[in-house]
Write a protein that binds this DNA or RNA. Structure first.
Lengths: 127, 127
DNA sequence: ATAGAAACAGAAATCATTACTGTTTTTAAA
DNA sequence: TTTAAAAACAGTAATGATTTCTGTTTCTAT
């Protein structure tokens, strides 16, 4: 993977904006500094970076994929009302869970994503 | 929700084919019995049925949404090589996990989806 | 320097999914 | 039973996210 100014900018944008931006949001932010960047470049690099393990791609129900600059093991909570994604601010105890999953004969588990859903504090206040 | 022959057929197809079919796969199966059914009808009903809690819609990375006729609490394993989705044949112990997530101030948790990924037995054999 | 590989911008294409339109089916009440 | 309103349908068009294509520019390792 060769260096490119665009890729660095895309990477920094995701890491410095911990709002779990979609490709389109990254594109909007990045264009302020790099007006001619193309949306295809944003998609290509977000995918490359997440394949390399430098970003995490998060797949959400009924919404565009979004990206997370945190790559340590952590999980997410989706507010089904406003659509925002939050990092859970603690480490879940997954050892037992992984042990159970690993016991399924023949499988080789390489990872696990956990997505809680519900209402965030703000949306909860409004209902 | 009124009765319709098409909806019943779509529902039965998902329940009787525990392969986690996509809308397109359901469409292909259903067309054998109902040649003029339209893809829009399949999508509409799969969404209705999962909103009603009669089916579960599963959102996967880099793939179409798929559907599961099992609606008890259970979780999935995605083979990153062949793309197949498997039901985990046991109940994970999520009480502790939910307690932790519920402790995040202000949030109201209504559900949780867990997706393991890795290699299934068959794909593992080939590598 | 320079040549080959990688990356780019911009545009077109693809794929999954949803929305629209006019017709048929269902349902509940007259 | 009719019948009228609501719901659902088929078929098609539209949308939105994402990927692919093409010709040009930028990196990088000699």
């Amino acid at each position: 993977m060769n260096y490119s100014r665009q890729r660095e900018l895309i990477y920094k944008t995701v890491v410095e904006n911990p709002i779990h931006p979609t490709a389109d949001t990254v594109y909007a932010i990045v264009r302020a500094q790099e007006p001619n960047i193309s949306l295809g470049t944003v998609y290509r690099n977000l995918n490359l970076l997440s394949q390399q393990g430098l970003l995490q791609k998060i797949c959400l129900p009924n919404a565009s994929d979004c990206f997370d600059g945190r790559c340590d093991e952590h999980h997410h909570m989706l507010c089904t009302h406003c659509g925002k994604v939050f990092d859970l601010p603690f480490t879940l105890k997954l050892e037992e869970l992984k042990k159970q999953a690993g016991a399924f004969p023949g499988f080789l588990i390489t990872g696990c994503q956990i997505l809680f859903h519900g209402l965030c504090a703000e949306c909860r206040g409004k209902h």
